[in-house]
Structures are given as structure tokens and as C-alpha cells.
Amino acid sequence: MKKNVIEVKNLEKYFEVNSGFLNRNKSIVKAVDNISFDIPLGESLGLVGQSGCGKTTTARSLCLLDQKTNGEVKFYNTETQEMDDIDNFDDANLKKFRRNIQMIFQDPYESLNPRWTIKDIILEPLNIHNIGTLNDREEAVKEILTTVGLTPPENYMPRYPHELSGGQRQRVSIARTLVMKPKFVVCDEPTSMLDVSIRISIMDLMLNLAKDLEVSYLYITHDLAVARYMCNRIAVMFNGKIVEIAETEELLKNPIHPYTKRLISSIPVPDPQYQRQEYELNYDELDEIIKNNPDDDMVDIGGNHYIATHDVKDSLY
């Protein structure tokens, strides 16, 4: 059986919203509500959904940027080859965990410190973890810059982020995340702010690096076409819950959940003659699954294809 790089079980992240005089009216927003998924080593999962459905919150909880409310996250330990619970890390293990997890952000203009040179930006993780001698680190920076296609590296190292184009900056972001050779990279819509023509080259670069360095991606996007290109599996998220999760081709060819169907039908087609058929919400299939499996949250309908069985009729319209 294949080892997982990360296992997420019943992850929940709630936000308290205070309003009224002296914050007396407290309400809770369930940004991430009871989601579970695994990512095998070297494979990629796409997290797809509309804006505000909790994709980024999930990612931030996994990276320990925000404290999760509930649930269990287990991460692959490269030395013992077992799964460690990320809540029980001591300092040494936390540092090891930080080495193996990285995040690429959406906005290439904001994700690089404008006052640092490219060299300093890529050196930062190496400096924090105190890896190798100073010369080794500089060599590593040169190597990773060459790998992401910024050649010759000597020309880019002393530059500042504002002197680079959006695509080049995103390459620097990727170089920065991969210079530590992490096992798991969370990509928060890394290509959505890029030119369509640059997008494919960045995605190819990420795929090649994933193959070479055996990196797993959690690829967050709202674009199913991008998810299809990048990921082995796709999870569709809606209102803080995963509504459907399956192998990429299976999900795109045989969507069951009405939300997934609507999402797929909304992919734009670059053909002016083509008249898109508006997808009419149809709950029959989902209702049948719910009727047959009244006790389960997620139902496997075969071929590793899971459907959530909670009622979405009120929220989907």
C-alpha cells in the first residue's frame, strides 16, 4: 500500500464573529466543516470550489498558519516513515515538519519581500534551518534558480522582486519553496494571477519538479482545467465541505453531485459558435445515494469516488 504524505480527518475551522454592544452577539462561521482527505506520496490533490468556500482556510490550517478548531492532521515523518500527528510536535519535530511543508501563494507581487534581493529571498529558508555552509547555500540558490529556468542565476540573484515580471516572480516563489526539497507543497492558486500564456509553462515546471523531487501538491484552484492538468485527484469543496472527491478523469467524466455538475458545466469554451447548455440542478442521483446510505457522511460509489451525503438543497440554488 502506498504511503500518504498527509492524512486529514474531520478537519474543522470555525471563526467567531462578534457583533453588537460589547460583542454580545456571538455567531460562528464554519469556514471548514468536517473535511477528510489523504494525499499519497508523490501525488497531487486538487481542491476546487468557488471563492469563499474554505479552500485557503484549509490550506492555512494544514500549514499551522491558523490553529484548527477540531480534527486530526497527520504528516509523513521522513525519518521514521510513520505518520505523526501535527498537534503533538515538540520543537525539533516541528522544525522537521516546517522543512517538509511549504506554500506557494496566489499573488506573486505580494509574496516576495520587496526590500530583499532574490538571493536573500531564496536563502531565507536555508538560513532559518541552518543548512550547510554559506557557500553551500549559495550553490543551492544557483542550482534551484537554474532548475526553475531563471538563467543565468547570477543575473537574477542581486535583483529585487519589482524588477521581475509576474511569471518570473512566481518562478522565484517556486524556487523558494523547493530549495528545501520539501515533501509537501500547498499551492494556493499559484497561476490564477498569471497570463494564460505563462500559466502553462509554470504548471509544466511544477509538474516536472514534482516528478524530480517527489513532491506532493495540494493544489487549490477555482479552475477545473488547471486542476485536471496538475492533479491526480480532485476534491470539490462547497460551503466548507468536500462534496465530491474522485480521480481526476472520473470526476470530470462522471460527476454525481449537482454542485460538481454545475461547476463543470460552467467551464468556458473558447468557441464562439458553441452554445452552452445551462445545467439544471437535479438532485435525483444525490437523493438516491442519501436514501441508500442514511448513516454515512461520505459514500464510496466505486472506483475511489466519494460523494458527500449532506443536504445541499437549501444552499444550492
Binding site: 531565507e124 529558508p125 532559518i128
Partner: peptide
């Protein structure tokens, strides 16, 4: 709240860094 601060924190940068 800029992403490069988050990015440093994920990498393991301490508060002082």
C-alpha cells in the same frame, strides 16, 4: 498580513526573524 510574512512563518521563521 502580506503573504511573504506567512511564507516566512511556514518556513519556520521565529517571531523575532
Amino acid at each position: 498580513v502580506k503573504p511573504f510574512v506567512d511564507s516566512a512563518r511556514i518556513t519556520g521563521g521565529s517571531n523575532m526573524t
